[in-house]
Design a binder for these strands. Structure first.
Lengths: 408, 408
DNA sequence: CTGAGTTTGTGCCGCTACTAAACAAAGTAC
DNA sequence: GTACTTTGTTTAGTAGCGGCACAAACTCAG
């Protein structure tokens, strides 16, 4: 009887490699029960059980032993899996033309708390980012919850790997501002734990829609949206954002959609940017935009108050035709299996979905690829939720390492 | 002393999961020695050794114990790894405007044997594919080597998952011909072992260039090429072809590159297809194309015989400008880290690389993404090599399962 | 209400494919 | 020739799974 036992098993002897995938399944709502989790992971019940127990021990999910309203089929009801509503949160921040917004986002993409800050956007990035981070820090203190990290959604292309904002034009920031660095520094200064990330707002909206919204289940998801000026695009491939080699992919604004259109600063004319953004809409509708509120808001107001105004109808039709041409061009290049529209483009889709779909199908090659579903985005504050996804990603990739136990 | 030994080790007790990745490293030339293989795989020397031994036992690679001209640094010289030149081959087939071609391609993308068939391309796909498969079968018999499968490069978009050719216009085939099915059936009928695959020729050329040619090491590789009529594109992301959700991605031919250009059958005008293909070149140079040989060949001949002819120079300049505009549009959408040009586009690049690079940089956003390297393709018969890659893929994914031992 | 059937959770055993570590081999550097 | 460096090999140990048997929790038929 020597002291050397054959093997003193540690508590967690399985499921280590499946921990991340399992959490992602719960996070995206694809694993409502332990039985489904078992099937989705392709492991045995024993392993899935260990995984669920470990994620519960980490405070990330809850395993509801009480079956309650299980029902449905025969057999023993499966334990329900859900995100732990008292678990950690990610700090999400967004800066846009109308101001900024901070929020706490839990697993599953649920916004736990939010604080809009409508101060005038300053020309100094450090000042604005400091304000939004401070607002987030206040939310965190109030909630008393653990923070896994912070994410920022910026209304600009973000160059990789430097993290500089290349075209923050409507923020009046200097082009090339090192937003990622500034944001990370402010996050550290505010005493917020965890890493800090920065991404383009349309990219992050696409990511959020893919995981929690209208893009669920899509393999090649294309998102196109317009907020204030210009048009943004994003592509999610196999669940991951495609940002290109230097973060500049899906700069779709300069597709030609109207050869006789108005000149664009890029040197061409009739670009998607200048033909389908809110300014183009207001102009086409014969309105003169005011300075008080964002152009998107003015466009929405106009669409809601006078949808039957002749000028508005013409403008809607024109913009739909231009947008459809641009989308068809993207369909021919990317061949997505779903398209999601945001901002004013979403309003255009709502105004006349048939017309838009017809244009896209007509101008896509062989019609086939043109039959792609075009949907409006469904999440509130999807860029904000997407920013939180950035912060959650390390936890989804490796929960043990990210949460500090057993530092990998 | 019971008969149960603690564990009777089987021959291969490690490296099972690393077998595929290891073979891919040797296949693409990224693992010249066992030491490098160890580092690239991120495993211990023991595992890498077992992997190399197993791949050698499978007849796929050779481990050169004889150091020979090792040298270089200190320490014990590493065993060199190389593809086994007597190992199995893949049957590659290509059909194009000038005829067809069959070849045997070994690991590493080396063409072992080839047989061009220059018969007139028939309007009956089954007949042409039968001829090319028969030519390949003859090569196989002569060589006496084992066959891992067959791949076909078709000059048409291939719809997924059906495998139908959507636009085999210059073959005079019916649109929608089930080429994948026909090819697979002919391969079976010829008694060739292994699965049969079919892909678009430009896609396959891109795959081949990525693994063995000018695209090595690129993460986001864009290929654009023009053969006879129209323009093809392909994208390789993280080593895998991006074909889109229904195989129709990178149909780049209808980007607008000349708003006042000639009308295109797609309904627009000035499309890349009609502005930069060999017909456009010959026309711009004031030549009337003849019917004997492919338009690409006529263009090449013209470029080589009269490069200083004023008409030719103007045509080259015009086409470069149009092509550059199209590439810039793709760069803005895809943000690749490398571009490879084939067919006539390659000739245009060779004719005036600076002009093309300048146009792309000038019309790309913020210049940054426009600084992407633009290179000519470097492989002979890259579509053919790419077709073989399709057949090799199962072996690269799981050598044991694909080669029949221990059927997974 | 009872027993059969179905589906899910859990404990135990063993295997497989790895790592770790010590050692041997084959070169270079001085 | 000796020290050092790097690579290959052998052996022992083990993490993280699968497989199986059994228990648990339901439905359903009668």
């Amino acid at each position: 009887m020597n002291g050397k036992a054959t093997t003193t098993r540690t508590r967690l002897d399985r499921g280590r490699n499946a921990l991340g995938p399992a959490l992602e399944l719960v996070h995206t709502g694809r694993a409502p029960t332990r039985a489904v989790l078992t099937a989705e992971l392709g492991v045995t019940r024993a392993t899935a059980g260990a995984v669920a127990a470990e994620l519960e021990a980490l405070g990330l999910i809850r395993v509801d032993s009480n079956p309650g309203a299980a029902a449905g089929s025969q057999g023993r009801p499966s334990h329900r899996l859900a995100v732990d509503e008292k678990g950690p949160v990610a700090l999400a921040a967004q800066v846009h033309a109308d101001g900024f917004r901070a929020a706490l986002v839990g697993l599953g993409g649920t916004i736990v708390a939010t604080a809009p800050g409508c101060v005038t956007v300053s020309a100094d990035p450090a000042q604005v980012l400091g304000a939004v981070v401070d607002a987030g820090a206040a939310l965190l203190r109030e909630s008393g919850r653990r923070c896994v990290g912070a994410g920022l959604a910026a209304p600009s292309a973000v160059a990789e790997p430097e993290g500089t904002a290349l075209n923050p034009l409507h923020l009046a920031w200097p082009a090339g501002a090192p937003v990622r660095e500034i944001f990370a520094e402010r996050v550290r200064a505010a005493g917020i734990e965890g890493p800090a990330f920065t991404g383009n707002d349309v990219n992050l909206a696409a990511l959020a829609e893919h995981r929690h919204g209208a893009g669920r289940g899509a393999r090649d998801l294309l998102c196109v949206a317009t907020g204030h000026r210009g048009v943004g695009g994003a592509l999610v491939l196999d669940g991951r954002l495609h940002t290109g080699s230097s973060g500049l992919a899906l700069e779709v604004g300069h597709l030609t959609v109207n050869p006789e259109g108005r000149p664009c600063h890029c040197g061409s004319r009739g670009c998607l940017d200048v033909e389908t953004d809110p300014l183009a809409f207001l102009t086409a509708a014969g309105r003169v935009p005011g300075p008080e509120v964002s152009l998107l808001q003015q466009s929405r107001d106009l669409l809601r108050t006078s949808p039957d105004d002749p000028g508005v109808r013409v403008a809607v039709g024109e913009l739909i035709d231009r947008l459809g041409l641009g989308l068809a061009g993207l369909v021919n290049i990317l061949n997505p299996d779903r398209i999601i529209l945001g901002g004013l483009h979403r309003e255009l889709l709502d105004a006349d979905p048939e017309r838009l779909r017809a244009v896209v199908a007509d101008r896509s090659l062989w019609g086939r690829s043109g039959g792609v579903p075009i949907l409006p985005c469904t999440l509130d504050h999807n860029s904000l939720v997407g920013a939180a996804e950035l912060a959650w990603q390390p936890v989804l990739d490796d929960p043990l390492a990210a949460l500090g136990r057993e530092p990998a």
